[in-house]
């Protein structure tokens, strides 16, 4: 039994990593098939199927923002460089999944509402959240080491916007569907939705690990560059 328990760890992170990557590729290749076979919604018709991509992207935008805020808090209050790395990585993922949300939503809206965009509370607050995360990434990209604290503060503002985005459909009158629509989904729709949500979340983990490797490599590079300077001066 002890040997069996030890088996997964003995394979090392490489095996888990490869399994996650393969599962992601297979899942994303099969997902369109599932979406095609999903039932057609009565009032909106087939365009409602964009829901199976749009909502997971929006969920990952919010998750990335919260992770970024968590890392930023660790950096601001404890000086954790690991927290700073986590924040930087998740901010990029927030921008990535945010743009996917902001593109897929209007494509759905064009058919369902007749327009690509409405300055509605949900859409506007989501755009604002994405712009704050873009500001974070830009500050970190071009601001140098001094921008770390400023960017961390931006992440806290972004995290404060997340509940507003989520609750906007309940607080204000909007044309966007309410969040209460998910529990009302039929069995087949629910299956496709949660499979898609799971696949997207797994993809997020894979991208987070991949981007985390790059961040670690850059930190190592900075340390080595300083070592080389010291070495040359000596």
């Amino acid at each position: 039994m002890a040997n069996q328990a030890a088996t997964p760890s003995s394979r090392g992170p490489g095996a888990v990593w490869m399994a996650a990557v393969v599962l992601c590729i297979l899942g994303f290749a099969y997902l369109p098939q599932m979406v095609v076979q999903a039932p057609i919604e009565r009032t909106m018709g087939p365009v409602q199927k964009i829901f199976y991509y749009h909502v997971p992207c929006a969920w990952l935008l919010m998750l990335s923002t919260f992770v970024c805020a968590g890392g930023s808090i660790a950096y601001l209050f404890k000086g954790s460089m690991r927290g700073d790395r986590v924040a930087r990585v998740s901010a990029e993922l927030a921008v990535l999944f945010g743009i996917c949300t902001l593109v897929t939503g209007p494509l759905w809206g064009r058919v369902a509402w007749g327009v690509y965009w409405q300055w509605d509370a949900r859409l506007t607050s989501s755009l604002l959240l994405w712009l704050v995360m873009v500001a974070y990434v830009m500050a970190r990209r071009f601001g140098g080491p001094a921008s770390r604290k400023l960017a961390a503060a931006l992440a806290l503002f972004a995290a404060a916007d997340v509940p507003l985005v989520y609750l906007s459909v309940h607080i204000w009158r909007t044309i966007h569907p309410k969040t209460t629509v998910v529990p009302t989904l039929g069995k087949e729709m629910m299956g496709v939705f949660f499979t898609s949500l799971g696949m997207f979340t797994l993809l997020w983990v894979v991208l987070f690990v991949l981007r985390g490797h790059l961040e670690k490599a850059r930190d190592e590079l900075d340390t080595l560059a300083l070592d080389v300077e010291d070495h040359l001066e000596a």
Partner: peptide
């Protein structure tokens, strides 16, 4: 709506990819 929706559904998934 079936005819109109398909390019939008494919476009959404394509953009994500």
């Amino acid at each position: 709506t079936t005819i109109a929706a398909n390019p939008f559904i494919a476009g959404a998934y394509g953009f994500i990819w």
